[in-house]
Simulated assay, not measured.
Amino acid sequence: MSHGKQFTLYTHKGGPNGWKVAFVLTELGLTYESIYLDFNKGEHKAPEYTKYNPNGRIPTLIDHRNNDFTVWESNAVITYLVEKYDTNHKISAVTPEDKILQLQWLLFQASGQGPYLGQAIWFKVYHSEKVPSAIERYQKETLRVLSVLESVLSQQEWLVGGKCSVADISFVSWNNSAFGVIVADIDGFDLAKEYPAVHAWHQKLMARDAIKSVWATRTSLQ
Score class of each variant (00 low, 15 high):
T26K: 13
T26L: 09
E27F: 02
L28G: 06
L28I: 08
G29F: 10
G29Q: 12
L30Y: 08
T31K: 10
T31I: 05
Y32V: 03
E33K: 13
E33R: 07
I35V: 15
Y36R: 05
Y36S: 05
L37W: 01
F39Y: 11
N40R: 13
N40A: 14
K41R: 13
G42F: 02
G42R: 04
G42T: 03
H44S: 04
K45L: 06
K45E: 01
A46D: 14
P47M: 11
T50R: 14
K51Q: 13
Y52S: 02
Y52R: 07
N53I: 00
P54I: 02
P54Q: 04
P54G: 02
N55W: 06
N55P: 06
N55T: 01
N55C: 02
G56S: 09
G56N: 08
G56A: 09
R57W: 02
R57F: 08
I58A: 03
I58V: 09
T60R: 01
T60H: 00
L61S: 04
L61N: 05
L61W: 03
L61T: 04
D63F: 00
D63V: 03
H64Q: 05
R65C: 13
R65T: 13
N66P: 07
N66S: 08
N67Y: 13
N67I: 12
N67R: 12
D68S: 09
D68Q: 11
F69E: 01
F69C: 03
T70H: 00
T70A: 05
T70G: 04
V71G: 02
W72A: 00
E73K: 06
S74P: 06
N75M: 13
N75H: 14
N75C: 14
A76E: 10
A76D: 10
V77L: 06
V77W: 03
T79H: 10
T79Q: 15
T79L: 12
L81W: 01
V82T: 11
V82F: 02
E83N: 15
E83V: 07
E83C: 11
K84A: 14
Y85H: 04
Y85W: 05
D86S: 02
D86V: 02
D86P: 02
N88P: 06
H89Q: 14
H89T: 11
I91C: 01
I91S: 00
I91Q: 00
I91D: 01
I91F: 00
I91N: 01
S92N: 03
A93T: 04
V94E: 06
V94Q: 09
T95G: 12
P96S: 10
P96M: 07
P96E: 09
E97V: 14
E97P: 06
E97W: 08
D98I: 10
K99C: 10
K99E: 11
K99H: 12
L101P: 13
L101Q: 15
L101K: 15
Q102D: 03
L103F: 13
L103H: 14
L103Y: 15
L103Q: 15
L103R: 15
Q104F: 15
Q104E: 13
L107M: 15
L107N: 12
